[in-house]
Amino acid sequence: MLTHLAGPYVVGIDAGGTKTRCVVLTLGGALAGTGTGPGANPNSGGDTAGALTTALREALGDVDRSHVLTGVFGIAGAGSAGRPAAVAGARSAWHAVGLRGSPAVVTDIAVAFAAGTSAPKGIVVFSGTGAGAAVINDGTIVQRADGYGWLVGDEGSAVWLGREAVRAALAAYDGRGSPTLLTESVPRALLGGSAVRNQEPSARRPRHHRALALAGAPSLASGGAQGGGGTGTALLVADDPSGEPAHHPRPGPPPNPQLAQAIIKEVYGRPPAALGRLGPVVAAAAASGDPVARRITEEAAEWLLRDVDAVRPALSDPYAPVVMHGSVLRDGPVADAVRSGLSERFGAAPRRAGDGAIGAAGLALRRLGFPLPD
């Protein structure tokens, strides 16, 4: 082992709903080991202890366990409701790899903020498997909005995007919703290309038509979150001899009950967090101009900005940093809209979070009195 990596060490873990990442740092902030494992959220039915142990053992490798001073585990679902299970899983993993004492357990929200700044306080807005916003002060959540899990919250998350994409595709299949690229991309992502090989929704469209979609779903900003609103109307606009556009209903994909049932079987046969893999599918469709996908991404951004607005009054320092964290907020239409909204609200561009496990290890260093690495 290189001299500058000889320890002592701290451990940081960022355990989400679909993946767990662990790092081992020296007191000077040098990376001495990394490891990964499956999702560890106790509220999603994952094997918390097993996932943490897998990532921790890989990261430690042949590191002398007696040189590990402390650790911070940021675990999704480790709020008050899931804290007992998260703490028990963390302690079990810590002892399983031969470490002494016990790690500190915080939520993954706290380490998400620490992954974007060394400042002790500020706001983090996050969207990955879960979604929400919080005011953080020295690793503690002062106030939060959402982050309540896939069943009752997490609006604007990758899982939420995936669920909305499936709903839009199914609605288009049975005639309740507007035609959308999602009728092709959703089953392809869930089932593979062969499942949609014979589905060609554009085959029946007349030539020399240009499609317009009038999204009828209400915006959250106009009160649409409280209900109402349809799925929108799709039209074909064809030039008639007079030069005026003639409007005709746009045919959607032919009914395909078998494909719809295959999607349902796949969705209900996997953990809810698996829907998160459709997040990039929605973003790609939105970027291609699909009005249904654009409505979904716009609504996701509105939910996330609402979360920020809800917690902002608890931030005492108006110049404290704002951090964006999570796969949905790295790039794409949701990230662009949220970044723009945050810049307007705070008069400065938000910071982009890095590795959450590094953020957790940085919190461990701070607890020992060492500065967080930049």
Rank of each mutant, 00 (worst) to 15 (best):
L99T: 06
S118C: 05
F113I: 09
H95P: 00
F126K: 01
D146Y: 12
D108V: 08
V125Y: 00
A145G: 02
G147I: 11
G122W: 09
V124E: 10
D138M: 02
H95D: 09
G116P: 00
T129W: 05
Q143N: 08
I109A: 15
R100Q: 11
H95E: 15
W94L: 02
V125E: 01
I109P: 01
S118V: 10
R100I: 00
T129L: 13
I109M: 14
D108C: 07
G139M: 06
S127F: 08
I136K: 04
G147A: 13
D108W: 11
F126W: 04
A119N: 03
S102P: 00
G132W: 06
I109R: 09
A112C: 12
V111L: 15
N137Y: 11
A145T: 03
V135L: 11
T140M: 09
V105F: 07
A119S: 13
A115C: 05
W94V: 05
A131Y: 12
F113E: 04
A104I: 14
V125M: 03
P120D: 11
Q143F: 01
G132K: 10
R144C: 04
T140D: 14
A110W: 08
K121M: 07
R100P: 00
G98R: 07
G101A: 03
V135Y: 10
R100S: 14
G116S: 05
R144D: 02
G128S: 14
I123G: 06
S102A: 15
G116T: 01
V135D: 09
G98E: 04
T117H: 03
D138W: 01
F113T: 10
V135G: 12
G116R: 07
A96D: 15
T117P: 03
A110H: 06
I141Q: 02
G122M: 11
G128K: 06
V105R: 08
A119W: 00
L99D: 05
D138K: 05
G101Q: 02
F113P: 03
R100G: 09
L99S: 10
N137R: 15
D138Q: 14
A104M: 12
G128F: 02
P120Y: 00
V111W: 07
G98W: 12
V111A: 11
V97L: 08
A110V: 11
L99V: 07
V142R: 12
G116C: 06
I141M: 09
A112I: 14
Q143I: 02
T129I: 08
A119R: 13
V105M: 04
V125R: 00
V106N: 04
A115I: 07
G139K: 07
I141N: 01
A96P: 03
G116W: 02
S127C: 13
R144G: 14
N137S: 15
S127N: 08
H95A: 15
I136W: 10
A133I: 00
V125H: 00
G101V: 02
T129Q: 11
A131W: 09
F113C: 04
K121R: 15
A131V: 06
S102L: 02
D108I: 05
G147M: 10
Q143M: 14
A134M: 09
F113K: 11
S118R: 14
Q143G: 01
A96W: 03
F113A: 06
G130T: 01
P120V: 03
G101S: 03
K121D: 14
P103L: 10
I141Y: 03
T129H: 10
D108E: 08
D138G: 12
Q143A: 15
D146K: 13
P103N: 07
